[in-house]
Amino acid sequence: MLKVENLFLKRGSFVLHKLSFKVKKHSYFVILGQTGSGKTMLLEALAGLQNIEGKIYCDDVDVSDMPPEKRNFGFVYQDFVLFPNMNVKENIKYSSKYKKIADKENLFEDIVSFLRIENILKRDIRYLSGGEKQRVAIARAIYSRPKLLLLDEPLSAVDPTFRNSIMKSLKDIVKRYSMTIIHVTHNFREASFLADRVAVLLDGKILQTGDAYEVLNKPKNIEVAKFLGFKNIFPATLLGFDQKGRYFSVDPNKIGFGDKQGEGFYSFPCVIENILGMSEHYKVFAKVGDETFFCKVHHSAFDKKRLKEGMKTNMYIDKKDVAFI
């Protein structure tokens, strides 16, 4: 559906480095990245709001030089950008002044009931809550019948209590309105719930693209792993592999202390460096050679092992809990 080839964009000191990716028709594509990694700029480039080098194809048509009004891509900004000189209904119907919208009255009714905004249609946008503004902005974008809907951190300004229901609505949009969505966020939980496919954008570069499960669970490099919150990232040489440049990661909850020998485990001698007591577990920092492992040890296990700072012991990891990067 959407094919991006070598998209290059420079604004001041910030650069999007020749990005290439594809988005399938009627799929939910999430671009994950830290704040300042270029996510909004990328969406604006796709929408035709920034001058770029490279090519953007939509349904095999080159739209790289098309103005935004001809591309038929909807856009919802993080701060929703509802037009202050119009009420809710006028905001939603804005596109009908410039586009022919098939069966527009039924579509309007359907969107309004789907997003549960029937009661606020005549309201001034100044008197809407964050969640209402967000739903109106989405309604306005859907009503214009875009082929592709671009969502810029749409949940960041929404009260956490409404997030789950809005996420569900976002997911339903793809099927209900036969739309393709590109959603940018820094929140990998959002990505995990919503995405069919995920791309990780860091410092203006796409570092990994793939199925949501694969990207979120099997990062291909350290930057992606760190961004996704992977802990205990160390060289694979620590496990006895001789490949330089290969790393592994292990969940702090999956590390055990004591003697555990056998084919299914990696085991090493360690020194307990530091212990911090938390309500449900202890945070234990254990030194193995030059590396410090971060482990979460449940109270019962902690008491059983009688771990103390400065104590020499063994730690072990089940091989199936090791993720190689």
């Binding site: 035709g48 103005p67 009004e69 900004y77 000189n85 804005y94 410039y98």
Partner: peptide
Amino acid sequence: KYEYVARTLGASRMSAFFSIALPN
């Protein structure tokens, strides 16, 4: 961004100016 959104909703540069920038 108001004008940007207006354009993604089908308004030309001039229409976005008259319908969004000028009234606001």
